[in-house]
């Protein structure tokens, strides 16, 4: 359980996190979404006591992280940039961290095997690929067998197999009743991984809701209609709350359900060639909701999903 209350962080005159309050509950995977510079990494660093909040507070399992006597057993963290000394082997990196908490060498060997780094564990971490670095980060998080996981962009740099492995791992951890808080800029990935979403933009809370509700509330669901009589259909469906757009011979209709359109068409004797609900993806919902809060707009086209780089 992670509880943030009025969490605020100011760097100079820039407000990185602005009065953020949320609760991350055990048993589900909670996604942490937001465009570039939204304050996700800063928030995660504040949870881990690495950065001190300007105002507000955040607790993990009822206490500030710093006050836990066995922090590695409390929270497993995968931090943004690779928090690994490049000159040290993966094994010695994990061993040094394990030793701070009296975690035995057998556990170090165990987590190395679990993340699949067995063959390279004695090699310098500086030579690791991004994906291997992420696996080492996951191994670090697993060391203390904690109850709470905070993972910043865990699938970043992983191959499809690795992504699926992370997704399964997160689901397993959550279904065991653990708290899983995971940030990602890959919204399609979040749709598959997370059950709950906390969405931020410019340091402010935009949404704190389930994935389904987020998609439903943030987007108008469209219905796609193809017909032999486009003008007749347009005239039939027009109404005060209905908007109709035409794209390559098909109508995109907002404000009516497929059921309603089907019944109306049948009564008017119009031929339907296609009638399908176009559900917005999480990505579209996300772009919709955060459109005003994207800090660094790419020049003219803003269609690219913002990649969370954050402050190193």
């Amino acid at each position: 359980m992670i509880e943030a209350r009025g969490l605020t962080k100011r760097y100079g005159d820039k407000l990185a996190v602005d009065d953020l309050s949320f609760v991350v509950t055990p048993g589900v995977v909670t996604g942490f979404l937001g465009p570039n510079g939204a304050g996700k990494s800063t928030t995660m660093r504040m949870i881990l006591g690495l950065d001190a909040p300007t105002r507000g507070s955040v607790t993990v399992n009822g206490k500030p992280y710093r006050d836990h006597p066995a922090p590695l057993h409390e929270v497993g963290a995968l931090l943004e940039a690779r928090a690994v000394h490049t000159g040290r082997s993966a094994y010695n990196h994990l061993l040094a961290l394990a030793q701070t908490s009296g975690i035995p060498r057998t556990r170090v060997d165990e987590v190395i095997e679990v993340v699949g780094l067995g063959e390279v564990a004695r090699k310098r971490a500086g030579g690791f690929s991004l994906g291997m670095g992420q696996r080492l980060g996951i191994a670090t998080a697993l060391l203390g067998d904690p109850q709470t996981y905070i993972l910043d962009e865990p699938v970043n740099g992983l191959d499809p197999e690795g992504i699926r492995w992370i997704r399964d791992l997160l689901h397993k951890l959550a279904s065991d009743g653990r708290t899983v808080f995971v940030s990602s800029h890959l919204m399609s990935e979040m749709a598959l991984t997370a059950q709950h979403l906390i969405v931020v933009g410019r340091g402010r809370l935009i949404a704190d809701t389930s994935v389904e509700e987020f998609i439903a509330s943030a987007s108008r669901n469209l219905v796609r209609v193809r017909t032999s009589d486009v003008e007749g259909m347009r005239a039939l469906l027009s109404g005060p709350d209905v908007t109709i757009a035409e794209t390559d011979g098909a109508l995109q209709i907002a404000g009516l359900t497929t059921d309603q359109i089907g019944v109306m068409a049948a009564r008017a004797g119009l031929t339907l060639l296609e009638l399908s609900a176009q559900q917005a993806s999480l990505e579209e919902a996300f772009m919709d909701v955060t459109a005003d809060s994207v800090e660094f707009h790419a020049a003219p086209t803003t269609a690219l999903p913002a990649r969370e780089g954050g402050r190193a």
Binding site: L79, V84, G87
Partner: peptide, 16 residues
């Protein structure tokens, strides 16, 4: 060396 590589964050997360 820990600050240059980012290792310090892992260290301080383990010893808050």
């Amino acid at each position: 060396g820990e600050y240059a590589t980012g290792m310090i964050r892992a260290t301080l997360a383990a010893v808050p």
